[in-house]
Design a binder for these strands. Structure first.
Lengths: 111, 111
DNA sequence: AAGATATTTCGATTAAGATAGAAATACCGA
DNA sequence: TCGGTATTTCTATCTTAATCGAAATATCTT
């Protein structure tokens, strides 16, 4: 059964959905700019003005889809972007748009 | 007011969300593989086994976010992937992951 | 104009997601 | 052990999204 591709597609859809909200896309961008150390949850919430409980749910969602990782350091939880997951997603999108199809020109993306 | 970046971010979040569902990601992939002619709505529905009314809503959503374009040819509606919109999105993601931050290595994406 | 086909819109149902205050849990330092 | 800070979980509300059958619209053909 060639359902490996189907699983991949479903996973990528979930990742896209997880980033498909302004607060969570902001979170990802912030974590990328703080890569690889990441940021403490409270710092993220302060920077983006997101209530604690709301932020916690967003971070849980991103973690569920493998887009962020978390490590505890005492009382603090450090969240980091997961570069490998983002690489997988970008490789998929790049392949679909620029390789499998020739819809997009690489030079217009890498510029 | 530096809200241009904020508008962009919101737009990219909407595009990600639009592709963040398995049926719609499949639709995009199918349209990319048929680029640039695109496909007739009924063909898409037959290939992906999606009910007509459901498909119509998915296509409307993709069109609203600028990810597909449509042209009428008699009774038929031809849907195509919008390469420019996809380029914008990929450029944004690539910049965030590989340029602004160095979280991802280009060679692992372009491979 | 009438019948046939393609596609959308309507109407309805069901499920999922976003938000946040309040309470609970985890950990540290004294 | 106790108080303090960080973070999550609980509970609740409100909105949005996914789905699809049936009816409506659009276009072609004859």
């Amino acid at each position: 059964m060639g359902n490996r591709e189907s699983e991949d597609l479903s996973r990528f859809a979930d990742m896209l959905s997880a980033m498909g909200t302004e607060p969570r896309l902001r979170i990802m961008r912030l974590l990328l700019s703080a890569h690889p150390e990441g940021m403490v949850a409270g710092e993220i919430g302060a920077a983006l003005e997101i209530a604690g409980s709301t932020l916690s749910h967003h971070l849980e969602r991103l973690r569920n889809e493998g887009l962020v990782t978390v490590r505890r350091e005492g009382t603090f939880l450090w969240y980091s972007a997961n570069a490998v997951a983002l690489q997988d997603l970008l490789r998929f999108l790049y392949a679909e748009c620029c390789t499998r199809s020739r819809a997009c020109e690489p030079r217009k993306i890498l510029a």
